[in-house]
Amino acid sequence: MKNQIQNLIKKAYSAFNSRDIDTALSTFHLDVQWPKAFEGGYVTGHDAIREYWTRQWTEINPNVEPIGFNERQNETFEVTVHQIVKDLQGNLLFDGMVKHIYVIEDNLLRRMDIELEQTIKN
């Protein structure tokens, strides 16, 4: 099951990075909940995600590469990603590691949450 989920997630990220919305959505449950990372809140369903991404890509150019996978005890799936976000002129806005936490339902991505890597300073 773990390899199947990893392959599903890799397919979703590859499609996202190449701006192939239909292929990305084929990995999502019909009632998927997706975070609006730069705005807050969530969008639900394929049409809302299509609209959100289409609008997002007119403002920023994100690229997200999965580099680590971890099945959590609470039956969620953690993906460590290297995320690079540039503005449309190519200026770097963000370059860092982020954790995407997935709920899987019916072998599809049902919900994604974002956990930022945090460092504690004394």
Rank of each mutant, 00 (worst) to 15 (best):
I101D: 11
V79C: 14
N91I: 08
Q118M: 10
K86D: 00
D87N: 15
T80I: 08
H82E: 09
D106P: 02
G96S: 13
M112A: 04
I84Y: 01
K86F: 15
R111E: 11
Q118L: 00
M112H: 12
K121S: 15
N91R: 15
F94E: 05
I84H: 12
L116Q: 06
T76I: 04
Q118R: 07
I120H: 08
Q73K: 03
L116K: 12
V98E: 05
E78K: 07
F77E: 06
N107E: 11
L88W: 13
R72C: 03
Q118Y: 15
I104L: 06
E78W: 07
F94K: 04
G96Y: 09
Q89N: 08
D113Y: 14
K121F: 14
E117G: 06
T80L: 05
Q89K: 07
G90F: 12
L108T: 03
R111Y: 08
E78R: 13
Q73R: 09
M112I: 10
T76K: 13
D106G: 15
L109A: 01
L93E: 00
T119F: 07
R72K: 14
M97S: 06
M112G: 14
N122A: 14
R110D: 10
L93H: 10
K121Y: 07
T76E: 13
L116R: 09
I114G: 05
V81P: 01
R111I: 15
F94D: 07
E117I: 03
Q89C: 04
L92S: 12
E117V: 04
L108C: 03
M112P: 02
